[in-house]
């Protein structure tokens, strides 16, 4: 076997060797590479350049021409060297109608931003399971994207069969379908909560109570810092102008706000006092 340099023909050669009998066993990779053969030849081949077969560089045609005042241009000016066609080296922007629709929807419904969304996906083909002839999907939560996809479906459908819809009409139709489903969702959740309360369910904390507790943590830290600073301020005020270095001494005793911690006993005391 001579040393081979063409990587892409590895399958071809191996099958040839197997047929001839040079190799007795199929290599482990054989079936896999057979199923997914490399379709791009990545080996770099030198470009064959022969004398006088190439076209002359157009850049050189700038020089050697005589100008109006009798002088001859011999080298490129700064203007000539400037890259004029910048757009050719730029990465083209991907532009989709979906993106515009999505921005319109979310900017008109800013609170829809506050409904959390996950970006984790395994294969990236989950969109194939969706059927946008109806808005509610089995494998996708209802959100702004539903409106976008439904609008596009309505547009395509109206073009194919049925009365023609404008973009805004399709968007409005999808929007009000979305509102209807959201209203149902919210009503469902409140009714089921009510039902479970009537059956004796007790919720440990509500979001409102939890929020108050969370606020209390920060307020307690702040209260400690504030009381310390108040002491410093009142002490300085009492001393008058004669105490020059007083403020600096007091500052040493001050603790950092990150050192103090939330005391549960304090929070309870406050709740009781209410």
């Amino acid at each position: 076997m001579k040393i081979q340099s063409k990587a892409t023909t590895v399958l071809e050669r191996t099958s040839h060797y197997l047929k001839v009998g040079v190799l007795k066993q199929k290599p482990a990779w054989y079936d896999v590479v057979g199923a997914f053969p490399p379709h791009t030849d990545l080996t770099k081949k030198p470009k064959v350049l022969e004398l006088k077969t190439q076209k002359p560089d157009p850049f050189t045609s700038l020089f050697g021409t005589s100008r109006n005042d009798g002088t001859v241009k011999t080298r490129a000016s700064a203007f000539d060297r400037l890259q004029k066609n910048n757009s050719i080296s730029r990465i083209p922007q991907l532009e989709f109608l979906e993106d515009e629709l999505r921005d319109v929807f979310y900017h008109q419904h800013p609170w829809e931003f506050s409904r959390p969304k996950t970006l984790i996906e395994n294969k990236g083909d989950e969109y194939k399971d969706c059927d946008w002839s109806h808005m509610l999907q089995f494998n996708k939560p209802l959100d702004g994207e539903s409106v976008v996809q439904r609008t596009l479906w309505l547009l395509a459908d109206s073009k194919k069969n049925g009365p023609k819809l404008s973009l805004f009409e399709a968007y409005d139709k999808a929007r009000f379908e979305f509102y209807r489903l959201r209203m149902r969702e919210e009503m469902n959740s409140s009714v089921s909560r009510e039902e479970s309360v009537m059956y004796g369910a007790v919720f440990p904390t509500t979001h409102l109570e939890w929020g108050v507790q969370k606020e209390q943590e920060y307020i307690d830290v702040w209260a400690k810092v504030a009381s310390d600073k108040t002491k410093v301020a009142s002490a300085n005020r009492g001393r008058g102008t004669s105490a020059g270095s007083g403020a600096d001494e007091e500052k040493g005793a001050e603790t950092s706000i990150w050192e103090s911690s939330f005391e549960i006993s304090d929070a309870e005391e406050v709740v009781e006092e209410k």
Partner: peptide, 24 residues
């Protein structure tokens, strides 16, 4: 799903806006 995140309304993520500006 990454492309499904709309353009934020402002550049300031936790700014003083009274409405949400970024997808959570």
């Amino acid at each position: 799903k990454l492309a499904q995140v709309a353009t934020p309304i402002s550049k300031n993520i936790r700014g003083k806006s009274s409405v949400p500006t970024h997808q959570i």
